[in-house]
Design a protein around this nucleic acid. Structure first.
Lengths: 110, 110
DNA sequence: ATACTATACCTAAAACGTTTAGGTGTGGAC
DNA sequence: GTCCACACCTAAACGTTTTAGGTATAGTAT
């Protein structure tokens, strides 16, 4: 069983990051891995996409970052979901659902 | 019952255009309307997005355009799905499904 | 007549997010 | 002592969409 990779659609990354962080605080590098795991190896988020995205959403107040260290003692910047981030996750999930529904409906058409 | 509008995600427009044309040839302006109807008024595709997209996918051979006239006699450029376009629609629908599945799976995670 | 609206096309600048590709530095394994 | 995994960051290029402009025709209302 091989995996056809799932391509990220532009605009979904924020939702995915927020979702990953909703399972607990994590540093950037770890978010990539968590997304990979959660998706059964189907999603690979590039660092060049992730770090700017984290910066973006931190500015918006959806996550807050703090320098710390991981289990093995290495320095890393940990991000956690803020209250606003939780709300935003809901918003983004709802608009995903809305689009998914629309696409499904259109697919039914003959 | 009002409609919260569904935003188009970058990268889905081609699939939507191909789907619209899979129901029969149509001119650009009509594609916008057909998408609107099919989506129960939730999707509005901008002309500035549509015409470049049509040009793009015609170059790729997924649709072919020909000048003609509509029912009321106005000139309009009609596009129809090619064989390659039908295949491409399948491809795009499959990758949409793949991503939708991944997103659903991740949403389940706790 | 003339104004307005809907139809139908097209284009260019700007905004946006992602990919690609470069870089730094640390720590552990071989 | 060299390599790989971890962990961060940035900039240029790329592709798509938004925004905002434009042309032209036909029908309807004033």
């Amino acid at each position: 069983m091989t995996n056809p990779k799932a391509d990220l659609l532009q605009g979904t990354l924020d939702m995915l990051i927020l979702k990953a962080l909703s399972l607990g605080p994590l540093h950037g590098y770890g978010i990539i891995q968590r997304l990979r795991t959660l998706s059964d190896n189907m999603l690979h988020v590039e660092q060049g996409a992730l770090y700017p995205a984290l910066y973006r959403i931190e500015l918006k107040g959806w996550v807050s970052g703090k320098w710390g260290q991981n289990e093995t003692g290495r320095r890393a910047k940990f991000y956690k979901l803020t209250k606003a981030g939780q709300r935003q996750l809901k918003v983004e999930e709802e608009s995903w659902d809305r689009l998914a529904l629309v696409v499904a409906k259109m697919r039914e058409a003959t």
